[in-house]
Structure formats: structure tokens, C-alpha cells
Amino acid sequence: MAVIAHTAHKDKLAIHRLGLWLFIISDSFLFLGLLFSRFYLQGVRRPPEINQPLGLAISIVLILSSLAAYRGETAAAYGDIKRFRRNILLTLGLGALFLVGVGLEWSEAFRSFPPSTGYGTIFFTLTGFHAFHVVTGLLALTVALLPGQRARLQEGNSWGVEAVVKYWHFVDVAWVFIFPTLYLVS
């Protein structure tokens, strides 16, 4: 009996995309809950010791990394593998730099508002959850550089790159909301 494939390659891409989007939508409710907790417990209070310039600096680093990721993904979709690798490596570097920035923040925050205080509870949890996403994002980006995906790129299949880059952008979007919530509101 002839067994035909129910789903062609194009449909498969649409399926994968929808699945990833649903994952992202689901995950965004986690951040929604975290932001809600901040306002529920602390209102719009903000301790004067918080390092606003550092916050701006790491925000800019993260946005730059998103640009690099975008360039990497676009290059991959157009088959420009060299440019793809360069940009994804750049993304990895900027992501790591972001984590260093968070580390600096944390060491300062430990002195002014440690996690056992009201604001510290919120601050460390929000940045911690976000940093966890950054770390998983970095791991995912690394996977996109491994031989499996490289070989698939040569066959014109860039879904793996698209997926990790989408996740990376999502991590950036989450930060767009977290940054003002923690560093700027009054």
C-alpha cells in the first residue's frame, strides 16, 4: 500500500512555527505574572540605590544582540553561511556581556537590597528568571552552530536558526518590559 506523507515540508515549517509561537505565548504569561507580583507587592516603589545607568547599558547590549541575531537569521535564510556564523557568534558574545552586566548588578544589589528584603525579593526573582532565559537562549544559539544545523543550512533548511533566534528575540522583548519595571518606574 502506498503511504503518502500527510505533510509536505512547507506544512512542517508551519507546524513548527505555530508550536514555537504557542510556547512563546505561554512563556510570556510567566513574565506577566512576575511583573504583576512586582506591582502587587511593591507598587511603583523603587530604591534610590538602584544603578540606572548600568540598567540602560545592559538594555542596549541586549538590543544590539537582538540585531545581531536578526542579521544572522536573515543571512542564514539567504544562504550566506559565513555572515550567519559571524553574527550568531556576535550574539553569543553580547548575550554573555549582558550576563556579566547582570552579575555586576547583583553584586551591588546584594549590598543595598539583598534578596531577603522586600524589593530585593522582587528584583532578584525577576532578573533571575530573565537571566535563566538568557542562559537557555545562549545554549540554544550554540546548538544552531553545531554540525547538524550547519548541514541542514546547506540544504536550504534554516528552521533551526529561525527557532533559536525567535526565542532570543522573545528574551529581549521580556527585558523591554522588565527594564522600566525594575529600574525606572516611580
Binding site: 511603583v44 540606572q52 540602560l56 538590543i63 529600574y183 525606572l184 518606574v185 516611580s186
Partner: peptide
Amino acid sequence: EVTEYVIGTRVKRGAW
């Protein structure tokens, strides 16, 4: 981002 930052540092209350 920079506009946000300016608001967040200059506006003392009710910036949210």
C-alpha cells in the same frame, strides 16, 4: 530606550 531612561531618571514621581 533612551527616552524611557530620561523619563525614568528625570521624572521624580508618576513616571510609570
